[in-house]
């Protein structure tokens, strides 16, 4: 894909959030370009998830500016949106994949309804078409089509996460925010999910911000990395560059802490 884009999809400047005396994140800034996957790595409590929550509006940021280039070409001041516009943006152009698939899924309704919900929220009113798209997406995330009428409760952890991804991507979002998408899954299931995600991101030309503490996940999925510590971004750069030639002492520590079996 050799497109020339003049402006980033998402521009973040000086993002800050305090929880009382605690620092959530401090002066975080980055640009996300169309088709790019940005990894945010760091240890637990480093502010990764706070950054993601500030972006999605689940947590109100104290400082900073987030600009998003919407589908219609307008530049949207994300933090300044009123709630109705923000929720509409989250429904139509953004997608969120939660660490725990139970947070992103409706456990009481069938897999098909879970995938169809965002379509119906955007105004789809044809049962047959909704179901057809749900089947398409179950196939894309490698869930057996005869499971479409089963409740998510009967799914394994890996299937739940794949179902959540199908549910998020069915409306064709341009930007996906993922919080530890492979967290809590065993290694072989993780590998399969990573394969799937990598394929989907390339195929759909998605832009994504992926928060993870797992450097292997970051290396596989992310084009660029931000390393966070104590709420601040201590290092950023191309993924291979950051992981193979870490400059900041904390990044060096982080990279050297990875176990190689």
């Amino acid at each position: 894909m050799s497109r020339v884009e003049e402006r980033p999809l998402l521009g973040v400047r000086g993002l800050g959030k305090r929880y009382g005396a605690q620092t959530g994140c401090l002066d975080v800034g980055f640009d996300l370009w169309p088709g790019e996957v940005l990894g945010v790595v760091g240890e637990s409590g480093s502010g990764k998830t706070t950054v993601l929550n500030c972006l999605s509006g689940r947590v109100a940021a104290d400082a900073g500016r987030v600009e998003y280039a919407a589908r219609d070409g307008r530049i949207v001041d994300v933090l300044g949106l009123d709630e109705s516009a923000r929720r509409r943006l989250l429904r139509s152009e953004w997608g969120i994949v939660h660490q725990n698939p139970r947070d992103g899924l409706r456990m009481g309704v069938t897999a098909g309804a879970n995938v169809g919900e965002r379509l119906m929220a955007l105004g789809a009113r044809h049962y047959g078409q909704i179901r057809g798209l749900a089947l398409d997406w179950l196939a894309q995330v490698e869930i057996d089509l005869d499971r479409i009428d089963d409740l998510p409760e009967t799914f394994s952890g890996g299937m739940l996460q794949r179902l959540q991804i199908a549910r998020t991507l069915v409306t064709g979002p341009r930007l996906v925010l993922m919080d530890e998408p492979t967290g809590g899954l065993d290694v072989s299931v993780q590998a399969r999910l990573l394969d799937l995600l990598r394929g989907l991101v390339a195929e759909l030309d998605l832009s994504a911000v992926i928060v993870t503490h797992d450097l292997a996940v970051a290396r596989l999925l992310a084009h660029r990395l931000i390393v966070m510590r104590g709420g601040e971004a201590v290092e950023s750069g191309l993924t291979d560059q950051v992981l193979d030639d870490p400059q900041h002492p904390y990044t060096q520590l982080l990279v050297s802490s990875v176990l190689h079996p």
């Binding site: 409706r106 309704v109 098909g112 169809g116 919900e117 965002r118 119906m120 929220a121």
Partner: peptide, 14 residues
């Protein structure tokens, strides 16, 4: 935001 009501109808038809 009434999409979820349609989820219920979808479930019934399913």
């Amino acid at each position: 935001e009434y999409g979820v009501m349609y989820v219920r109808l979808y479930e019934d038809i399913t």
